[in-house]
Amino acid sequence: MNLNANQYSHLTAKERDSLSFPARVVKERGLLMGDVLDFGCGFGKDVEILAKQGIPIEGYDKHYFPEFPEKKFDTILCFYVLNVLLPEEQASVLMEISSLLKPSGKAYFAVRRDLVYEGFRTHRVHQKPTYQTNVVLPFQSIFRNASCEIYEYRHYNQLQKVASTCPFCNPGEDVELIVESGRTFSIFDKYPVNPGHSLIIPKKHVSGYFELNFKEQASCLLMLNQVKKEVQKRFNPEGFNVGINIGEKAGQTVSHVHIHLIPRYEGDVEDPRGGVRGVVPERKNYF
């Protein structure tokens, strides 16, 4: 997917003099708790108005306020952003927001429900190709009318647990969630091989990677890329191994598919040559 094809997504931002409709809804319901971030804030009008009303709020927008936040937030707003993004871009936004949300925090996504045309079109004012699409999220819907729907997102491990003994279907509330998307989440390995050893886990409970459909596999690989960035930033490793154990004979001990991202460091083993070939130790060498 060529993301550069959607280079004019920011042209959908609108100049306003008043609070946006979804901002009014979440404010009237008392949902603006603690430190607030408006992610994809456009020209920043909601940030300006809410700040004047005493709400501790910051704004981030890739195009208009491009300084990426350095801290985590209790409440994150993301209004009418996903509708103008390609699917891979949408997943990236979900992962970025999940990484900026405190463990007990909540994010609110507003999406349009009045779109009659999906795909690229020529923007009426700017005469540039802009993209729009309908979006349905796998989160709790807290408001819907003919033009707007608002979803509430909480970290996967903070939700009510399912009736299962699988540790990946029921990650503990105290487990640090690295990033999350609609289909996938990632955590640090409970028994790490090296500092930063991470797991990328689809929410769908199946044993093997090849039981996932294409979209679920793609979601895992997109998250693998994002988690690599997070681990690189935190731990600064000098290399990585990526692996999936599929089946008992391949060493799988938890029958819920997961991808291992293992950072590597100078001197962590005597001879690193051969890498993943070491799963069969006597055949690790090339001679």
Results as ranks from 00 to 15, higher is better:
Ser181Phe: 03
Ser181Thr: 03
Arg183Ala: 14
Thr184Pro: 04
Phe185Asn: 04
Ser186Ala: 08
Ser186Gly: 09
Ile187Lys: 02
Ile187Met: 00
Ile187Arg: 00
Phe188Ala: 11
Phe188Val: 13
Asp189Leu: 03
Asp189Glu: 03
Lys190Phe: 11
Tyr191Asp: 15
Tyr191Arg: 14
Asn194His: 13
Pro195Val: 00
Pro195Gly: 08
His197Val: 00
Ser198Glu: 04
Ser198Ala: 08
Ser198Arg: 00
Leu199Trp: 12
Leu199Asp: 00
Leu199Ser: 05
Ile201Phe: 02
Ile201Ser: 01
Pro202Gly: 08
Lys204Asp: 07
Lys204Gln: 07
Lys204Tyr: 06
His205Asp: 02
His205Cys: 12
Val206Lys: 03
Val206Trp: 01
Val206Ile: 05
Val206Phe: 03
Ser207Asn: 09
Gly208Phe: 01
Gly208Ala: 14
Gly208Ser: 15
Phe210Arg: 13
Phe210Ile: 05
Leu212Asp: 10
Leu212Phe: 07
Asn213Met: 09
Asn213Ser: 15
Phe214Glu: 14
Phe214Asp: 12
Lys215Tyr: 06
Ala218Cys: 15
Ser219Glu: 13
Ser219Phe: 10
Ser219Arg: 07
Cys220Lys: 06
Cys220Ile: 10
Leu224Glu: 13
Asn225Gln: 12
Gln226His: 15
Lys228Phe: 09
Lys229Asn: 06
Glu230Leu: 12
Glu230Ser: 13
Val231Met: 12
Gln232Arg: 13
Lys233Leu: 14
Lys233Gln: 14
Lys233Thr: 13
Phe235Ala: 11
Asn236Lys: 15
Asn236Asp: 09
Pro237Lys: 00
Phe240Ser: 08
Asn241Asp: 08
Asn241Ile: 04
Val242Ser: 06
Val242Tyr: 13
Asn245Val: 13
Ile246Tyr: 15
Gly247Met: 04
Glu248Ala: 15
Lys249Phe: 12
Lys249Pro: 14
Ala250Val: 08
Ala250Asp: 13
Ala250Ile: 08
Gly251Ser: 11
Val254Tyr: 00
His256Phe: 14
His256Ser: 06
Val257Ser: 07
Val257Phe: 09
His258Phe: 04
His258Lys: 10
His258Gly: 06
His258Trp: 11
Ile259Ala: 07
Ile262Phe: 12
Pro263Gly: 09
Pro263Lys: 01
Tyr265Arg: 00
Tyr265Cys: 03
Gly267Met: 00
Val269Tyr: 04
Glu270Arg: 09
Glu270Leu: 15
Asp271Trp: 05
Asp271Lys: 05
Arg273Cys: 11
Arg273Asp: 07
Gly274Glu: 05
Gly275Trp: 06
Gly275Ile: 04
Gly275Thr: 05
Val276Ser: 08
Gly278Gln: 10
Val279Asp: 07
Val279Cys: 14
Pro281Val: 02
Pro281Phe: 01
Pro281Ile: 00
Arg283Val: 00
Arg283Thr: 02
Lys284Trp: 00
Lys284Cys: 01
Asn285Trp: 02
